[in-house]
Write a protein that binds this DNA or RNA. Structure first.
Lengths: 111, 111
DNA sequence: TTTTCTATTTATAATGT
DNA sequence: TACATTATAAATAGAAA
């Protein structure tokens, strides 16, 4: 993208790929942060890599958990708006169950 | 950032904020995609907004589910390596519980 | 309102140390 | 190997349509 318009495909060279990863990951997380602040919205990113056992995330691990569970409460089917009014009872059970999990994790941390 | 070095804080004006959101969200998801392709890694992003009921995500909803469940199986406490060997039973219960939730959702979809 | 334009800032690939 | 520099590509804020 500079000195040469890079082709968007897997970087074969190990050290080049690592350097690119580190730089782009940093800038990506910065962008997530900026979007969230500028627009006052919830956003998160999770980036796995062979260089860390743990993924790099934005914002904190804890906040990602919150946003992710919000995401998981809205099953894929709702997107296409089939079953929207059906199955309400079951979805409520899922939400409740998720809340319990979150509480469980919280308790576990505090222990 | 151009014509003026914008201050990194909540954009008060509604229409400006919406325009900025749409542009930056598009570019953010593009960046996630590029990082993933260039470096051959798993990454995902979830962006909520008041403009859509559903969050904007990258990659597909289904892939985000996969990455997110990978994330959730690695509790926060493991990061700081306190309680790593403690509390194993409880964590297993959480994982199991989570698996049940996923199965529940799957069943719900298939119903 | 939303889209297009563009001056300027930001990101970044290659190179240097 | 990792960090600093720099020339160029990409993103973008504000204005104009």
């Amino acid at each position: 993208m500079t000195r040469k318009k890079v082709k968007l495909c897997y970087i074969a060279n190990d050290s080049t790929r690592k350097v690119t990863f580190k730089k782009r990951k940093k800038d990506l997380l910065k962008k997530v942060s900026e979007l969230s602040i500028l627009c006052g919205i919830d956003a998160c990113a999770i980036v796995y890599s062979p260089y860390n056992n743990q993924p790099d995330v934005w914002p904190s691990h804890h906040e990602v958990q919150r946003i992710v569970s919000q995401f998981q409460r809205m099953p894929e089917m709702e997107q296409s708006s089939w079953m929207v009014d059906q199955d309400r009872f079951l979805r409520q059970r899922i939400v409740k169950s998720n809340d319990q999990l979150i509480k469980q994790r919280k308790d576990s941390r505090e222990k």
